[in-house]
Nucleic acid binder design. Structure first.
Lengths: 180, 180
DNA sequence: CACAACATGTAAGATGTTACATGATTGA
DNA sequence: TCAATCATGTAACATCTTACATGTTGTG
């Protein structure tokens, strides 16, 4: 959807080749915003056709040719226009299968729910720690992955953790009452 | 993706016709999980073809025929199987355009950013209050939209609000420093 | 030499949105 | 009578995932 703008944003700072763009995503926004080659290469093709980027073969020492992409003036305009068009209607979305599952909590069973939630909590905690460390290591001065986005991710991870904790307690009490 | 399970879940409690299913979604999970007819009717068709629901014309007083959908035993099995298959890999996603925008915060300008964030905060606050009231009105005993999901939404809304507040303060300080 | 990582893409299919198309019923 | 709401769908398009297809380079 707006992958094209993410790509233009990357290229507005430095030229990159396809594989490298994917790396950049994975090393930064990747956990939040995973992309696949099946999505990236067609996007680069489209941007080339529309004149927002140009492509140059970098036939260096390697036998394989890298396709290096450069943003054009048109591309910069296109990106800036998208930025200027804000604000649009924005809605917080927490649409995922795990949430949907709680529609059916009666059909799952308290014991299984508790196990699942514990697993999920561990995974969130791991991610959360990762971002905390990332935030601390970001003290440098070179252009990096925006702190604001990491902070946002952290806050949502903590919200999710709190939710799981509250619910776990509730379900635990239920289990105890049942076993009496 | 998993709309089919959401639909089966609804039908597992009561038969519904298409339009009504959309209403049910809008009145409950709709803010989190909006669906369109362009998605719903093909899904109902697919579920019918796969034998998970059956369709009966309800030609009442009205000239127009409602198509009422009933879940079948196969449908119940299909739903239960999906539920039993958990846990799967689940990842918290905050992938949206508003977040992406903070990739480009330098290109936006602090003043505009602040205005946007203020607008967004208001909108989140409105939603948050809506859910708070919903949660309070849920004290009854009839089967309703799961409290857990509303609570989850609330926690994420509050996380998002906190994020905006922190960032706003940071940007305000920046503006003040610039104007000195 | 084998395997991981580098490098570029296409194709099929799932999923989702928006616009289109039609017509009935209800309430102001 | 006019607009909103009720009611059911299709079609075109956008987006995204997964699998396929190919070949190179570096490392143990």
């Amino acid at each position: 959807m707006s992958l094209q703008y993410a790509v233009l944003g990357l290229l507005s700072e430095n030229p990159h080749y396809g594989y490298e763009i994917k790396q950049e995503f994975e090393n930064s926004i990747g956990d939040i915003w995973p992309i696949s080659y099946g999505q990236l290469y067609p996007t680069l093709k489209m941007l080339t056709e529309r004149g927002f980027v140009t492509r140059k073969k970098e036939s260096g020492k390697k036998a394989i040719d890298k396709n290096v992409y450069f943003i054009t003036d048109e591309g910069r305009k296109h990106l800036q226009k998208w930025i200027n068009d804000y604000p649009k209607k924005i809605q917080l979305s927490i649409k995922d299968e795990f949430t949907l599952l709680f529609f059916f909590y009666e059909k799952i069973g308290t014991a299984k729910l508790l196990t699942m939630m514990k697993e999920q909590y561990k995974s969130l905690d791991y991610q959360s720690n990762k971002y905390k460390h990332l935030l601390l290591s970001l003290r440098g001065n070179k252009r990096q992955f925006p702190k604001a986005i990491i902070r946002k991710m952290l806050l949502h991870l903590e919200a999710e953790k709190q939710w799981l904790q509250e619910l776990s307690e509730e379900y635990s009490h239920q289990l105890q009452r049942q076993s009496l």
